[in-house]
């Protein structure tokens, strides 16, 4: 069961404020979802199964060359010096 505290913890590590309505409604909904995926527990833990579907050979990787982007990447919230603003610690 997902308690209200569990939900608050999940919301905290996910950095999401929940509305009153969501706090009310979510525990039951998430419970049902978790109950639904609990069926995965029936599967054996079999280490012989290769989990990786894709491989890439070293030779295929990008070579180390500079290619500067000409695009202006950031258009929001820039200070005169070109810094972005973000939340301050403390």
């Amino acid at each position: 069961m997902i308690s209200k505290e569990d939900l608050e913890h999940l919301a905290q590590i996910s950095r999401i404020n929940l509305t009153e309505y969501e706090l009310e409604k979510f525990p039951k909904q998430l419970d049902k979802t978790i109950e639904y995926i609990d069926i995965l527990g029936e599967l054996a833990s079999d280490d012989s199964v290769n989990l990786d579907l894709q491989e890439l050979r070293f030779e295929e990787l990008r070579t180390d060359e500079i290619r500067m982007s000409n695009n202006k990447q950031l258009n929001k919230n820039i200070t005169e010096d070109g810094f972005l603003r973000g939340p301050k610690m403390k």
Partner: peptide, 11 residues
């Protein structure tokens, strides 16, 4: 004044 409350970020 306008930056006092924020951190400045350079990527």
């Amino acid at each position: 004044m306008n930056v006092r409350n924020t951190a400045l970020i350079d990527y």
